[in-house]
Computed example of a mutant assay.
Amino acid sequence: MILIAMGVSGAGKSLIGEMLAERLNCPFTDGDAFHSAANKEKMHHGIPLTDEDRWPWLKTIRAAIEEKQRAGETAVFTCSSLKRSYRDVLRAGDKDVCFVYLKGSMEVLRERLGHRTGHFFDPSLLQSQLDTLEEPGEDEAVTESIELPPEQIVDNVMEKLKTR
Rank of each mutant, 00 (worst) to 15 (best):
E151R: 01
D30S: 00
G31V: 05
I2W: 08
V97D: 15
A21R: 03
A75L: 01
E134P: 09
K42H: 05
Q152I: 08
L161G: 07
R62P: 14
K42V: 05
H115E: 05
K13H: 10
M158V: 03
T163Y: 08
L125S: 15
E22W: 10
H35A: 03
E66F: 02
I146T: 05
S81N: 03
L58G: 10
T132C: 13
S85W: 15
T78K: 03
P149S: 00
P27F: 04
I16G: 07
L113N: 06
E134N: 11
A11T: 07
K83F: 13
L15N: 10
R164V: 03
G72M: 11
S36C: 04
S105N: 01
G137Q: 12
D53A: 08
E18D: 04
L133D: 07
R91S: 02
E66A: 07
D122C: 00
Q127A: 14
V157C: 09
D155P: 10
V8Q: 11
F120H: 02
K162A: 02
R110T: 11
T60L: 05
P123K: 11
L102T: 10
D53S: 02
P123R: 06
H45P: 02
L125V: 13
E138R: 14
A37L: 04
G7F: 12
E22G: 09
D139C: 12
E147P: 10
W57T: 03
R116E: 11
P136Y: 04
P150K: 08
R23W: 01
L102K: 09
A92G: 08
S124V: 14
R112K: 14
E41K: 00
L125Q: 11
M158F: 09
I47A: 04
T29L: 04
L113T: 13
E135Q: 02
K40M: 04
G17W: 09
E159K: 06
A11V: 10
P136E: 01
K103M: 14
L90D: 14
G114S: 06
A21V: 08
T29C: 00
